[in-house]
Amino acid sequence: MAGRFDGKVAIVTGAGRGMGRAVASRFGSEGARVVVAEVNAAHGEEVAEQIRAAGGEACAVQVDVSRSDDVHRLFAAAVESYRAVDIVVNNAGIAVGRALVDYTEEDWDRQMGVNVKGVFFCCQEAARLMIPRRQGKIVNFASTSAFVSSSRPEVAYDTSKGAVRQMTVSIAAELAPHGINVNAVAPGTTATEMTRTSLASEEGVAWQLARIPMGRVGQPDDIASVVLFLCSPEAGYITGHTLVADGGWLLY
């Protein structure tokens, strides 16, 4: 199978469902060896198996990215299986939505643990492997909620995505001299498990569509193609940027 990412090793976190799954599948079909990192072992195995069934190469690693020892184990497993890591896509994320007055400390810690601490330690492990090789691509998942508030109250989620956006900027500046590109993608409303409840009712869909100039919600593949672009040589001079793919949501 010949593809843009032949022989490249790509770790995708949260690859068991939604956008992460789409990214992992696309990498698999374009020649990469994919490490399907997923907290739900069954989901991870299923995606890895699907990639292999389609003729690609993949292995699944069960990981909770909010635990740094888990993250360390993930990267060690990737190196053991495929000897190097060329691409890391930090997609794993959760949304703990509450009114501000209802948040508990535990909610806050869980939200930040996955979305911020998880991305940080994955970037750290990636950098340790990439710096000596003077190459690498990292793509983090921000959100339109890194720029404006979410469509329902979820201040902890919005804060976590704002943090990812800024982390991307700072890590990009630090790693650029080592030839490593670090970017983020900011999806708008995308049809995944996470948005299932807000897109469940006709009113919910109508409300979303009224806000999206392109008149449709995003599909996981719309976002996957942007992530793959950021990991390709075509985007070699882009670093430190949060690429918005939202059908125009943020424009007004």
Binding site: T168, V169, S170, A172, A173, A176, P187, G188, P213, M214, G218, Q219, D222, I223, S225, V226, L228, F229, A235, Y237, I238, T239, G240, H241, L243, V244, A245, D246, G247, G248, L250, L251
Partner: peptide, 21 residues
């Protein structure tokens, strides 16, 4: 190309990290 199918109105710096730093 269709790879950017959900992008419109996006500002895309291609600047080697200039704006980041």
């Amino acid at each position: 190309s269709d790879a950017s199918s959900f992008m419109t109105g996006a500002y895309v710096p291609v600047d080697g990290g200039t704006l980041a730093a």
